[in-house]
């Protein structure tokens, strides 16, 4: 018994050390003065010079802004399509083409990126030849590609959330006179809103992070941030990337922590209210 109690924390500490030490080391070296990224120059560190360099780097700033725009468009599109697909799979019962739809929403979750990238590029080339649209490749093609592979994640999240709710809620609304569209907007949508928000954030993150698919479907002048970083680090380590990573980690960690705290507070209030209701009726 004693030994197991020791084993559990040990596993957790080791596992999380593995996950976080590389990130922390990257953050520490972002304050290093030396140009040799991995050698600590104790005399002149910490320094913020790489942060300054980062904010002077037009190429990175432009790419970041492009990635944010693509991410936002992607997430919005993925949320709309993914919510529809999740709704259809969770609530519409059997219909023709259901198996295919369910297959097409789970396969992208594991599909190797090179295959998705190549196939989408060939599609765009063929479409351009046959239809003249999309003319050339750039932001539009990247967004379409990103929507396609991220909507699968939104579908899974929405479907799981809907599976946790009784369909009788929607039936009750319909029984009370609401048409299907109204039922969706007044009942289903508010209930799955948390799933939609997490779906949006996840789709944004996946789009923001993608380098392989973007490389296939991007055109000249549409280099996203990961593409710029990738070509930079391919040539060797560069300290301003450390600075960028640090900023990113801090931002994400802050956002996630705030979100988690807010959710926890709401959860606590809800639990207290339930306890109160039970106590009142004793």
């Amino acid at each position: 018994m004693k030994r197991r109690e020791l084993f559990r924390p040990l596993v957790l500490v080791a596992g999380f050390a593995f996950l976080y030490v590389p990130i922390l080391s990257m953050m520490i070296f972002s304050f290093n003065n030396s140009r040799l990224v991995t050698v600590w120059d104790a005399a002149n560190s910490p320094t913020l010079k790489w942060y300054a360099a980062l904010f002077r780097n037009e190429q990175i700033l432009d790419a970041a802004w492009l990635s944010i725009r693509i991410g936002a468009m992607t997430a919005t599109g993925a949320v709309i399509l993914g919510t529809l697909a999740g709704l259809v799979l969770a609530r519409f019962g059997r219909f023709r083409g259901r198996t295919l739809l369910s297959g097409m929403t789970t396969a992208p979750l594991v599909m190797p990126e090179v295959i998705t990238g190549l196939s989408l590029l060939l599609l765009f080339v063929t479409m351009e030849q046959l239809l003249g649209w999309p003319a050339g490749r750039g932001v539009l093609t990247i967004t379409i590609a990103h929507v396609t592979f991220t909507m699968a994640y939104v579908t899974v999240i929405v479907q799981a959330r809907l599976a946790g709710f009784d369909d009788s809620l929607e039936e009750a609304a319909m029984d009370l006179g609401a048409r299907p569209a109204k039922v969706f907007f007044r009942i289903t949508l508010p209930l799955i809103l948390p799933a939609i928000v997490s779906g949006w954030l996840l789709a944004f993150t996946l789009s923001w992070d993608d380098v392989v698919i973007s490389q296939f479907v991007a055109g000249p002048g549409s280099s996203t941030l990961p593409m710029v970083i990738f070509s930079k680090v391919r040539l060797g380590v560069s300290p301003d990337v450390n600075a960028l990573a640090t900023i990113l980690v801090v931002l994400v960690a802050a956002a996630v922590t705030v979100g988690a705290l807010l959710m926890r507070r709401q959860e606590h209030r809800r639990e207290r209210e339930i306890q109160l209701a039970v106590a009142e009726n004793k």
Binding site: M26, T205, W208, V211, P226, V241
Partner: peptide
């Protein structure tokens, strides 16, 4: 995983 895959490999 919310930060960046590329940057974690880079680390």
């Amino acid at each position: 995983s919310f930060t960046s895959f590329l940057l974690r490999v880079y680390a």
